[in-house]
């Protein structure tokens, strides 16, 4: 734990992530403006002491909108990555345990999904399912499912022949019980690292889809919707797009640093190299 706190990456990453979480959860209580209330006297005002990130073309406070949009985007990414992770890990672990045709078929399906650019896959899903919040979640989940399935399957395979798993097997424990009780706790840290990086990519994916108008539809605010808005009047009020993107970048920086730090902590090879 002391080593963990000494890592600057972890401290900065965790700090930024907690700040982001606090901002999007406590947003409505800490900003004096409503994200949807229009104010036609204060249209497109540059950042100042009242409106820290300025206002948009309807006079809405950009900071308030970013915080509430951030909540929508984070919710989408969290649900998408969560669903992808749970289904992917379940499928991957089962495939490794059962082997045979199921494993071959699952890995072939993963290979196939991996052959599409991830954003193209999400875009394609949006067309098949229709635009909107729920369908982005499904698109993000589908983009992450193969990543988690492959990771869980590979990790499970390396652990399957470890003595403690063999011992549990000899004691007559069932497959499901061994996977959940013996293997999952051991592969969980690595999955968590993947999830923290995936969370950042999920947010970018939502932002990209909504930015193109293929994701969350206005008036619901999401980071992608606000960025798309900012593009409309970029030359008149460049701060809307610039500031929103900057906030998104800082939030993603926090998640990426956290992922890096967790990877350093969970990788025993790196831990040894780092010294006693």
């Amino acid at each position: 734990m002391r080593r963990a706190l000494r890592s600057r990456t972890l401290v900065v990453g965790l700090g930024l992530t907690l700040l982001t979480l606090f901002g999007v959860i406590a947003g409505p209580w800490i900003t004096p403006f409503s994200p949807t209330e229009m104010d036609f006297i204060a249209v497109l005002t540059p950042p100042d002491m009242t409106h820290w990130l300025g206002t948009d073309s309807f006079g809405r406070d950009v900071l308030s909108r970013v915080l509430s949009g951030g909540r929508v985007s984070l919710f989408i990414s969290l649900c998408g990555v969560g669903i992808g992770a749970v289904l992917g890990v379940a499928a991957g672990m089962t495939a490794a345990w059962r082997g045979g045709m199921f494993e071959v078929a699952l890995m072939a399906a993963c290979d196939l999904l991996f052959a599409f650019p991830s954003f193209v896959l999400a875009l394609f899903m949006m067309v098949v399912l229709g635009f909107g919040l729920h369908n982005i979640i499904i698109a993000v989940a589908l983009a992450y499912l193969p990543i988690f399935a492959r990771l869980a399957r590979n990790l499970t395979r390396t652990l399957m022949h470890e003595p403690f798993v063999q011992a549990a097997r000899l004691m007559g424990q069932g497959g499901g019980r061994i996977l959940l009780r013996e293997i999952l706790p051991n592969i969980f840290p690595t999955l968590l690292v993947q999830a923290s990086v995936g969370l950042a990519f999920g947010i970018v994916m939502e932002a990209g889809l909504s930015f193109l108008g293929l994701g969350v539809q206005p008036p619901m605010p999401s980071l992608g919707v606000i960025l798309a808005d900012g593009r409309e009047y970029f030359t008149r009020g460049p701060w809307v797009l610039t500031m929103t993107g900057l906030v998104v970048s800082v939030a993603l920086l926090g998640l990426n640093l956290l992922g890096d730090a967790l990877r350093d902590l969970t990788d025993p090879r790196l831990r040894q190299a780092a010294g006693p």
């Binding site: 932002a207 990209g208 930015f211 610039t242 993107g245 998104v248 800082v250 993603l252 640093l257």
Partner: peptide, 15 residues
Amino acid sequence: AVLGVSMPDFWLGYV
């Protein structure tokens, strides 16, 4: 490098 991964590319394009 970490900052680069964290910036959405389409936003960076505009900036």
